[in-house]
């Protein structure tokens, strides 16, 4: 520990840097050598590329209405058919992946921040632990979908509402995971050693404790990402997700539910796209978990 404070000889510093690079390379090799992760990564990369390039590759504008082509079945002009507005389903799905990814990333970011904050606070500041944990227990007992419906009633359905509702839903479990892994790390000798040499609380939390809680957090957030893509679809289906005419995957399914037998293509294609994207994220999560945190092969429950 003390060695870091003193200027190390150049050769040693280079040695450390090389070792770090080697470790990173080895880690990446292990990660991409893991078949689940690789498949999942390819799927997600394709998904992300679609979202980024939606403007370029979509054959039509996602909100382009054509009342002469209402409920057209899949054809050369419309590969995935059209909906009740004559809008091209393929174009809507391509743009819809963007909405799903945006919501997913926001939820992951917010859950990551709040989960880490609450989890660390609970484990680090003893007197807050009970308070925070009981609060989180309460939120866990509160159905997130209903929160989203109430928010939509108040503010109108929007991406923001969906993000807030999903954040509230997924934060408690993530905070628990962070808290649990921080508690494990906290008891370890090197933390006590850091305290002993007089490292500040902030430094200890960031440099040592969080670094060690990161692996389970990343794994958990991958699954949160996956679940929030499905949850977005559920909220849109109930009419409280991104408002029309936004081409979210859930909205497209909702548009198609009245025509499920007459125009199956409206609901079926986005459903498959959601399933594939979520599958990709789950596979990535599995791979990450195996490589980052082999002991934690079980998704943690609430206790």
């Amino acid at each position: 520990m003390a060695a870091e404070a003193a200027p190390a000889p150049l050769s040693l510093a280079a040695e450390i840097a090389r070792a770090r690079r080697r470790r990173r390379a080895a880690f990446l090799r292990r990660l991409f050598g893991h078949p689940s992760f690789l498949i999942g990564f390819v799927i997600l990369a394709a998904f992300a590329a679609t979202a980024l390039l939606a403007d370029r590759i979509a054959p039509y504008a996602p909100t382009k209405i054509d009342y002469r082509a209402i409920l057209a079945p899949p054809s050369a002009a419309h590969w995935f058919g059209t909906d009740g507005f004559g809008r091209d389903i393929l174009s809507r799905i391509l743009h819809g992946t963007r909405v799903s990814l945006t919501i997913g990333l926001w939820v992951v970011a917010m859950v990551g921040v709040f989960g880490t904050l609450l989890g660390t606070l609970a484990s680090y500041v003893r007197w807050l632990d009970g308070l925070i944990m009981r609060g989180l227990d309460g939120l866990m007992a509160f159905p997130g979908v209903l929160l989203a419906i109430a928010l939509a009633a108040a503010l109108g359905p929007s991406e923001t509402n969906a993000i807030i509702a999903l954040t509230v839903t997924f934060t408690p479990r993530t905070a628990r995971i962070v808290r649990a892994s921080v508690l494990v790390v906290q008891g370890m000798q090197y933390i006590e050693a850091a305290h002993a040499v007089g490292a500040g609380h902030g430094r200890i939390v960031f440099r040592y404790i969080l670094a060690n809680a990161l692996s389970p957090l990343i794994v958990q957030l991958t699954f949160v990402f996956a679940v929030s893509i499905i949850a977005e679809a559920i909220l849109s289906f109930l009419g409280v997700g991104p408002p029309p005419p936004a081409p979210s995957l859930g909205n497209i399914i909702a548009d198609g539910r009245s025509y499920i037998q007459e125009a199956w293509w409206i609901a079926v294609f986005p459903g498959i796209v959601i399933a594939v994207a979520v599958l990709g994220l789950n596979l990535m999560g599995d791979g990450l978990r195996d490589v980052l945190d082999p002991r934690q092969r079980v998704e943690r429950g609430g206790h």
Partner: peptide, 27 residues
Amino acid sequence: IRTAVVAEQQLRAAGINVVIRQFDQPT
């Protein structure tokens, strides 16, 4: 909902800056 979606498209094309806000009935 359908009226709003189609009207929004047409009015925007005509240079009117329409945005849809959707709420439940009591709101």
